[in-house]
Design a protein around this nucleic acid. Sequence first.
DNA 1: CCAAAGTAACTGACTCGTCAGTTACTCTAG
DNA 2: CTAGAGTAACTGACGAGTCAGTTACTTTGG
Lengths: 221, 221
Amino acid sequence: MSGSTGDASPGVRRRMPYARRREQLLQVALAEFGRRGYHLTQMEHVAAAAQVSKALLYQHFASKEELFVEVTEAIVAELTGRLNAAVLAEHDSREGIRAMIRVLFDYATAEPDAWALVIRHLDKPEVGPELRELRDRLGTAFADLLLRRRRADPKLSPAALAVNEHRARLLVPLMYGSMLSMVSWWLEHPDTSRDRAEQMAVEFIWLGLDRLRTGERLPKA
Amino acid sequence: MSGSTGDASPGVRRRMPYARRREQLLQVALAEFGRRGYHLTQMEHVAAAAQVSKALLYQHFASKEELFVEVTEAIVAELTGRLNAAVLAEHDSREGIRAMIRVLFDYATAEPDAWALVIRHLDKPEVGPELRELRDRLGTAFADLLLRRRRADPKLSPAALAVNEHRARLLVPLMYGSMLSMVSWWLEHPDTSRDRAEQMAVEFIWLGLDRLRTGERLPKA
DNA sequence: CCAAAGTAACTGACTCGTCAGTTACTCTAG
DNA sequence: CTAGAGTAACTGACGAGTCAGTTACTTTGG
């Protein structure tokens, strides 16, 4: 019909070099796992979506689990990289929080399948420790953010610092959970302005954080 | 040997009346689903754990999915009931939040399998809409709590009220996510005092909530 | 009081579909 | 013409759901 070489137009496009094919397979697998979840995704689905046979898939990845792990690790690396960069770029802790939230919204928007994959499998120990690791790394990033300035403060006694570390550790799941929950909620409510959602999250989290970080207690009433 | 009627002592205890058996199967299934998750739980596991044949299981429940749904619905009913009761019992919104958090901690402690089941499947559309419903009901309970007093306030114009409703809707996922995340985190860190965790959650959430509820903006710095 | 008849709980051994993983072959780019 | 990209067709195992039959308990006619 048309040009014979690697042309995009005719229905079939075949015979890619190894590395490129592998990349494509990873992308396709990410989408499938993200959309259906690990258990409902079959290797045939992935192969079909890549317009390729299942056997070829197995020439690139030894097993379903290995494929999943590889996909997941790429996501984890990407996301934690972005988060760390964002946190490190900001010196003010409020701006650090804002930056992290923005990273999450950005990522969820740009890579909805990857986001869905992560969210879906975060609490499933059955598919390997990679996602636990992501969660822990996120937690570490949070804790660092919370404590970096405190730790550098020479006026604080080690005892006071220890107390603060403990409180900070308790804050991590609160912040973590609200951020992820907000992003997921926003994805399901596209009519809501992203700016509002983002801003609300920043205010909500920073308010609780800042007051508690400074050790202030609640007013009694 | 001993008493002839339904005696408990001899190693095997079989042949229970229909209703009791059904109850037992539901309990066992809850534990299995909670521990392994839907996909990794096989009907044979449930049957074996109940010391019963798979066929019997199918005389009580038409399918794996139906069994799962039945288990889930019971949990949803129980939890939302407790939450509603807790919220209704408190007139102060801060105490309402404290009450909800306490309900969640109580439930997660007393019924760890049920808790694990709910948390694990919250974001999995594949196993039916029951858990979405739970999430939405929790959300509704939150929103009600947030807005009940506001709605009753005659000094607020409808327009101001609408603005507040919108903000409240944005607050729901933040509160919701942080609560659930905190409870799950605490379950995995048994060395942490429950009172501290609970108190921290109350303070964190109420702080953000109260300030935003009153429409106050953040200080600029 | 107690067979024998009736019934409900229960089981072992099957079917049938599905899906991860393999094998033996074909095609094509260089 | 050949290496390696690609496939169609296969296998083996597993798991949901079924069914013919057995076992324990209950009822009732004598």
